[in-house]
């Protein structure tokens, strides 16, 4: 199977990223991945596993007191980790766009939404183009209410406004989208996904797409990374990940999917909680893993290549070694 992205120079290269919040909460530990130009990388995993923290760390928008460390965060050949905030701001917004999980916080509450749209999009797009694009994602009605403030639109409407601004204001090479369609129903979600994929087709926009909706992830992503307890435990092309998940957490997560469980059977939640997983020296999933080995509690497994994917699991490595 030809991988269209194989061998390409990565657009984004992240090596050994750590994010720590005061407490200290090690929210992200030793996360490494690449994103190729035009590639859509899905990021899934347990609530609290650090997906949002990865996105905010890449954009340099971590809250005060939070700490980021990495061996490399290279974006289009520039080391973002070494940039000063002022220079980072120039990259962010132009080449690197971000749709945060709480989109409402990125709109000014006292300025009409339509004025904010004009402000961000007016330089690049004519009024007709703005209307066409917004109508394409069902936002025509927003343009008809030019004086209304963010507070009087629905969450789903604001979410699409924020996506439109992030994706269209400049010509970003990479869009970090943190649960961008979580508040949208299926028909509107389809419209937004179509807009994002059109931008990829036309402009080669690459994306990091954080989502809990495994059906959407399996439909739009090229590769998928799985996070647990601050660790990236598995990353593989979408087909391999869904057909042959290797990490025991990935398996449990896929088994809990409503779409794969017959309606008359209860959903298979994973026993136990992820509480404290971020602090464990070994595999963060060890306390809940049905096949845990003694070594799992002591040592974090090293990343091992399995076909086109990479996995951090002692058992998966053993299976290959044997």
């Amino acid at each position: 199977m030809a991988d269209p992205t194989a061998g390409a120079v990565p657009l984004l290269r992240v090596r050994d990223l750590d994010v720590t919040y005061p407490g200290p909460v090690p929210a992200v530990r030793g996360v490494s991945f690449d994103v190729a130009p035009g590639e859509i990388l899905g990021l899934v995993g347990e609530s609290g596993s650090g997906k949002s923290s990865v996105c905010t760390a890449l954009t340099g928008l971590l809250p005060a007191g939070a700490h980021r460390r990495a061996d490399a965060i290279e974006f289009e050949g520039t080391d973002l980790a070494a940039l000063r905030e002022r220079d980072l701001r120039r990259v962010r917004g132009r080449r690197l766009a971000f749709v945060p999980q709480q989109p409402m916080t990125s709109l000014a509450p006292t300025t009409p939404v339509v004025r904010q749209l004009r402000w961000y999009l007016g330089d690049r797009l004519t009024d007709v183009e703005v209307r066409e694009t917004l109508t394409g994602i069902g936002l025509g009605p927003v343009l008809d209410r030019p004086r209304d403030l963010p507070g009087s639109f629905s969450g789903g409407q604001l979410q699409r406004v924020v996506i439109a601004i992030a994706a269209l204001a400049h010509e970003p090479a990479l869009l970090l989208a943190d649960e961008p369609t979580t508040t949208l129903d299926a028909t509107v979600q389809a419209q937004v996904l179509r807009l994002l994929l059109t931008l990829r087709d036309k402009l080669g926009l690459a994306m990091v797409y954080v989502s809990h909706d495994l059906a959407v992830v399996s439909t739009i992503c090229d590769r998928v990374g799985v996070m647990y307890g601050g660790r990236l435990v598995e990353i593989a092309p979408v087909r391999e990940l869904f057909a042959a998940p290797r990490h025991l957490y990935t398996r449990a997560l896929l088994a809990a999917m409503p779409a794969t469980t017959p309606a008359d059977r209860p959903l298979r939640a994973i026993e136990g909680t992820a509480e404290g997983a971020n602090l464990l020296p070994g595999c963060p999933f060890a306390p809940r893993c049905p096949q845990v080995l003694p070594v799992c509690r002591e040592r974090m497994p090293e990343p091992t290549a399995h076909g086109p994917g990479t996995v951090r699991c002692h058992l998966a490595s053993e299976r290959v070694g044997a």
């Binding site: 809990h212 997560l253 939640a269």
Partner: peptide
């Protein structure tokens, strides 16, 4: 905004 497993917990 919940992952599949936590979703299952809430549904149950």
């Amino acid at each position: 905004s919940l992952d599949a497993s936590v979703k299952a917990t809430v549904v149950d």
